[in-house]
Simulated scan of single mutants.
Amino acid sequence: MAGPDTAPTAPVPHAEPLVRLYEEPGLRCWRLPPALSALYGGDLGFPEPCLYANFVASLDGVVALGPEYPSSGSTISGREPADRFVMGLLRACADAVLIGAGTLRASPRHRWTPEHVYPAAAADFALLREQRRRAAEPELVVVTASGNLPAQHPALQAGALIATTTQGASRLTGHLLPACTILPLGDGPTLRIPQVLDTLRARGHTTILSEAGPRLVGQLVGADILNELFLTLSPVLAGRANTTRHGLIAGLELLPKQQESADLISARRRASYLFLRNRLPRRRPSAGDSEH
């Protein structure tokens, strides 16, 4: 996740335009409003359906500083305006934003909307969504097997879709505002992530952004359902000592037994920050592949 913060404590500076270093020929693009295209260094689009994730990482591969540092993505990114703009743009392109309960709890005042992270482009984000005939804001989807959620969180107060188990639904019933929809998806102690994705697609969400943490992203990769990865490489060193500091994926071991490679399809730069976009090859066909 590209570092949602607890709340903007000062006006977000305007981003400088990204410099396009590489773009795969023939990459699908939507025509962005001119102001967004100028800042991004070109247009942006996705094949449909598409599930894409967004992270910011230090030079030494750290995306989370540990449980004692909530919202550590903002520290890793240095609140770089260009990173915040890209985060907002990726949200503006999405039908739904997917997070886990841990991400929600770690950002107690955050709203997963485009304008929350980059207010300067709020009107242009809204224009993009209007042009694509989408709702005013992407739907927030919170994944929680246990149903342990802070009911007073402003993102939940504004409304969200809660994907949970039958037991989690029982725990949440009567504790959330009517703006939230509780979606029980099974009687067991865990959730099947492919079932969550299938349910979102059935609700008409064809373009889904994951801002979940490394463990949930590990489940997406393990289930072979993550299509693209946006990675902001921040010019900082995080280091590791006597604390757990995850990389992009946690809870899933790949190398040396299993090699997963991604294709670089776009690279942009702003000062010493790199903005990379990778496509993850599919290991096996999915039910939706016949629709392409």
Score class of each variant (00 low, 15 high):
S146W: 13
R84A: 07
E137K: 13
F230N: 12
A10V: 10
P108S: 12
R201A: 04
L128N: 01
R201G: 04
D124M: 04
L254Y: 11
R270H: 10
F46P: 05
L233G: 06
S234R: 00
Y118D: 06
N148M: 09
R240Q: 08
A38K: 07
L21R: 10
N278T: 15
R284H: 08
R283L: 13
V217T: 15
S77I: 05
P49V: 02
N227R: 01
I193H: 03
A106I: 11
P67R: 11
A10C: 02
R192T: 07
Q167E: 15
R109L: 02
E291R: 11
V143Q: 13
T190N: 15
L254H: 09
V63H: 05
V97C: 02
A123K: 12
R79N: 14
A38N: 00
A267E: 07
I249Q: 09
I265K: 05
Q258I: 11
I208C: 05
T173H: 15
P178S: 05
A155E: 11
P67E: 13
L255F: 14
H116C: 13
P8K: 08
P214L: 07
A241W: 04
Q152D: 15
R201M: 10
T164I: 01
F275A: 14
T190M: 06
L229Y: 12
R240P: 01
F46R: 05
P70N: 04
V196W: 03
E24C: 15
R279T: 09
A163Y: 13
A10D: 09
A223S: 11
C93Y: 02
P33D: 13
L90E: 10
E260I: 12
G3A: 09
L18I: 03
L36R: 03
E24L: 14
L172H: 02
H246G: 10
S234N: 05
I99M: 00
F85I: 09
E260C: 12
L156E: 06
S74R: 03
R91E: 00
D60N: 10
A15K: 00
G100I: 01
T173M: 09
L27Q: 07
L191G: 11
L177H: 15
P13D: 02
P235D: 14
L128P: 03
G239F: 04
W112Y: 15
